[in-house]
Design a protein around this nucleic acid. Structure first.
Lengths: 120, 120
DNA sequence: TGACTTGTTTCCCAATCAGTAATATAGTCG
DNA sequence: CGACTATATTACTGATTGGGAAACAAGTCA
């Protein structure tokens, strides 16, 4: 378990910052299915074009996605294997927390074991 | 490979946002070695106390760390297994990117194979 | 009680950020 | 060339953020 060096903190924070916005996550989610043009991403994310374009630029500059131009269109795709892994990790955690929350509520209703644990 | 639901995007963004700051990462790094009092964290992170206290509060509210009071001191510890996994993933990536960068620079100097690949 | 220690909170400031509308660029087609 | 399409950029706004100083709260000890 190596200790994280000081000089890494800023770089790490920058990576995380890229993922710390719902619009960017929506964009990345769209790109997880494969390469997409800006227009396609705009459709799938239901955000306006300028907004998507700006976020795509940020993601590209951070090295998370790559750009390819073809005629009028520009295609982006995920270029950092880290992205999907991080997203899925966090996603799973949220699912788990949601389930824990549900379990806790149900346990309260049921009375925490002991008396009458009938479930019907 | 499940698709990320819309309602998750904000929750995911919030998790990532907590990790998107160098000071918070420094604090978490200190806590990775085990439970620490606020004062200890202040020392290890070389930030002032009000600042550390504020960030610890954010982390606690986000559920990433837990609080325990004992006399005058307050002890915090990491309470979300996700934290270390995310940090190490990102950390490894940065190491790898740094190495790739070095390889690329060295390749330029060496002339990319072919002529005279003597190294002494 | 009052001095002291440890942490927390409040207030303020400068910086950053996300979203939007308008404008600009670049490529295609006639 | 001009009309059109896809994308990028700029200018602006309101909201959020991180940091610092100072006041505040809580616990200890004499």
């Amino acid at each position: 378990m190596p200790v994280i060096p000081d000089e890494f903190l800023d770089l790490m924070a920058e990576k995380f910052r890229m993922l710390a916005d719902p619009t960017r996550l929506a964009i990345l989610r769209a790109l997880m299915a494969g390469e997409r043009s800006v227009g396609q991403v705009v459709e799938e994310t239901a955000r306006n074009q300028a907004n998507v374009s700006k976020h795509l630029k940020m993601l590209a500059e951070a090295g998370l996605v790559s750009r390819r131009k073809e005629g009028l269109q520009v295609f982006y795709k995920i270029d950092d294997p880290l992205v999907e892994r991080l997203c899925h990790l966090v996603c799973e955690t949220i699912v788990e927390e949601a389930r824990e929350g549900m379990d806790r509520r149900r346990a309260l209703l049921d009375g925490w074991g002991g008396e009458g644990r009938s479930r019907g």
